[in-house]
Amino acid sequence: MLTNEQIGDALRKLSGTLRDGEKGFSEAAENAKDSSLKSMFSELSSQRASMASQLEPLVTQYGETPREGGSVGAALHRTWLNVRDAITGRDDAAVVAEAERGEDVAKGNYEEVLKEELPADVRSMVEAQYAQVKASHDKVRDLKHSMETAKS
């Protein structure tokens, strides 16, 4: 079993992942041209904000302070994307591809935490959130693949 500090660290990482997703999907909604994509990304941003709000009391319970923003790595990644996008311009396929890349990271972070021996209440919440993250990952991935197929 993990120590309380290790559990708090793991939950704090997931909290940061969710806040990164909230920001990333919000940016995707702002940059998508298609109204259905804007709507989907806005819904996913709201979902991530809600999930982070559910998780943050557990983060505090295990002695950590929830992250206000996302991770430093994600901030650097977003900065790089903004630079690249300023040069190449954005189209919806590029926005969806970046959303999928972010979802790959989120899914991986949840899978990493779920490998640990967690207390039952923590495991239950993390598994429920993982199911939501995986569903949105698969939705974005499938959308990316259908957009690629439509292009060719």
Rank of each mutant, 00 (worst) to 15 (best):
E27V: 11
E27G: 03
A28L: 03
A28G: 04
A29K: 04
N31P: 00
N31I: 03
A32S: 15
K33R: 12
D34A: 15
S35W: 06
S36L: 06
F41Q: 07
F41M: 12
F41N: 05
F41W: 08
L44Y: 02
L44Q: 05
S45R: 04
S46H: 08
S46K: 15
S46N: 13
S46W: 03
R48Q: 11
R48V: 01
A49Q: 15
M51T: 01
A52T: 06
A52E: 13
S53P: 00
Q54I: 02
L55C: 10
P57H: 01
P57I: 00
L58H: 04
L58C: 03
V59L: 12
V59A: 09
T60R: 13
Y62V: 06
E64K: 14
T65N: 11
P66S: 10
R67M: 12
R67T: 14
G69F: 07
G70W: 10
V72E: 06
G73D: 09
A74N: 09
L76E: 07
H77Q: 04
H77F: 03
R78M: 05
R78D: 07
L81F: 10
L81Y: 10
L81C: 07
L81A: 04
N82R: 14
V83G: 12
R84S: 11
D85K: 04
I87T: 03
T88W: 10
D92S: 05
A93I: 02
A94N: 06
V96M: 06
A97D: 13
E98L: 02
E98S: 09
A99Y: 04
A99E: 05
A99M: 14
E100M: 08
R101M: 07
G102C: 09
E103D: 13
E103N: 11
D104E: 14
A106Q: 01
A106P: 01
K107A: 09
K107R: 15
G108T: 08
Y110V: 05
Y110N: 01
Y110D: 03
E111Q: 15
E112N: 12
V113G: 07
L114E: 08
E116P: 00
L118P: 02
D121C: 00
D121Y: 05
R123F: 08
R123A: 14
S124N: 12
A128Y: 04
Y130M: 07
Y130A: 13
A131Y: 04
A131C: 05
Q132D: 14
V133G: 05
K134C: 00
K134F: 06
A135D: 14
H137W: 15
H137E: 07
H137Q: 11
D138T: 14
K139W: 00
K139V: 00
V140I: 15
R141H: 15
L143V: 06
K144E: 12
S146D: 08
S146G: 03
E148W: 02
T149D: 10
A150Q: 15
